[in-house]
């Protein structure tokens, strides 16, 4: 008890916790940061990184907006990068302090939500497409028709993940619209299409990794990383990139305006832009990272996986979710509510 008291007294008294020498406060998604990466960083720089978890962009944003959080770096999703920037919660990066900034792959440098990567650097990215067991359905899988106009082989065997933005956007792209559409003509088609397709779905649920591996489901709208794990269990499963358009997501590291450990934060950002270190992030969380040359250091089964490395012919169809207007969000919610009935 005495030691406990002392420990706590120390903790309570720690006023300069965040500004002490050689520490860094990283605020990241849970189970997303490789412990080996942090050990290597400490061995090279002597800086101790403390990771604190969050489980949604909204919680992270709310806490940082409230101030006094003590964090230095945060890792929001693409559409939140803009929100953090516009609210002035983060600072533009001093690129002179990031020699490895040049390692960011060209396609991840020119993103519209952070042109030239002036405010954020890549952490990990992935896609939402369709996973199909080709032993059951041998037709074309690079189309959203697989789940919107379900082929007979897949009727009653296909799942759709309950992610409103991704699903409504995939359907909007399929019916010729744009993400965050406010075009009522298109949205009507989207709603009718989704409602007509739904009776052919087995479920709207998470857990495709398990349910497809044990053949409960023959197909699912799914994330790429999860699909890779399914394929490793069941080799007949393939990942389709709908040519009408599929969604891309990326989580990026940003420097907070009230960061206490700015030097350490730059050291860390430059560190993870080195290909061998970026590969450690990918090997831990099983998604690609956006740093050129990191493939060479990734686990071999990842570096060549068609789920992780988008085949050239499918690259153009990928779409980032922009920040949608209030109106378009209302439409999206209305369609989703009707679909849930």
């Amino acid at each position: 008890m005495n030691r406990l008291m002392t420990a706590t007294a120390l903790l309570l008294a720690t006023t300069g916790l965040a500004s002490a020498e050689g520490v860094l406060q990283l605020y990241n998604w849970g189970n997303y940061t490789s412990p080996e990466l942090l050990e290597k960083f400490k061995a090279e720089t002597g800086i101790t990184v403390t990771v604190t978890d969050y489980d949604s962009n909204d919680v992270a944003l709310a806490k940082i907006e409230a101030g006094g959080h003590g964090f230095d770096l945060v890792v929001p999703s693409a559409n939140y990068v803009q929100i953090f920037t516009e609210k002035g919660l983060t600072t533009p990066l001093d690129l002179a302090r990031l020699p490895n900034h040049a390692n960011i792959a060209p396609e991840w440098r020119g993103v519209e939500w952070d042109p030239g990567r002036a405010n954020s650097i890549p952490w990990q990215w992935g896609t939402v497409g369709v996973a199909v067991d080709t032993a059951i359905y041998g037709g074309d899988i690079n189309t959203s028709a697989v789940w919107l106009e379900v082929p007979d082989e897949l009727k009653g065997k296909i799942n759709v993940v309950p992610e409103m933005t991704d699903i409504v956007t995939l359907a909007t792209l399929y019916y010729g619209g744009q993400p965050c559409s406010e075009d009522l003509e298109v949205l009507k088609k989207v709603r009718d299409g989704l409602l007509a397709a739904k009776p052919n779905w087995i479920a709207m649920d998470y857990g495709a990794t398990e349910k497809m591996s044990n053949k409960d489901w023959a197909a699912s709208v799914n994330w790429n990383g999860s699909t890779m794990r399914i394929r490793q269990n069941l080799p007949t499963v393939a990942y389709g990139y709908p040519r009408e358009g599929y969604t891309l997501w990326m989580d990026s590291v940003m420097l907070l305006k009230d960061a206490q450990n700015v030097d350490e934060a730059y050291a860390f950002m430059d560190f993870i832009l080195k290909p061998e270190n970026a590969a450690m992030i990918s090997n831990f969380a099983r998604y690609a990272n956006g740093v050129s040359g990191s493939e060479a250091f990734m686990d071999p089964e990842m570096a060549t996986a068609p789920e992780v490395v988008i085949p050239e012919e499918h690259k153009a169809a990928g779409v980032f979710m922009p920040v949608c207007s209030e109106t378009s969000r209302e439409y999206m919610t209305a369609i989703w509510t009707e679909l849930q009935k």
Binding site: L17, A18, Q25, Y27, W29, G30, N31, Y32, T50, V51, T52, D53, Y54, D55, S56, V59, A62, K63, G68, H69, G70, F71, D72, T209, S226, R229, A285
Partner: peptide, 23 residues
């Protein structure tokens, strides 16, 4: 706890909550 915690102050329940997005 989730809302009040500062850097490096995860408790067991908030650590578990943080795992949700990944497998």
């Amino acid at each position: 706890t989730e809302f009040v915690k500062s850097g490096g102050q995860d408790t067991l329940p908030t650590y578990m909550l943080g795992q949700l997005r990944r497998q």
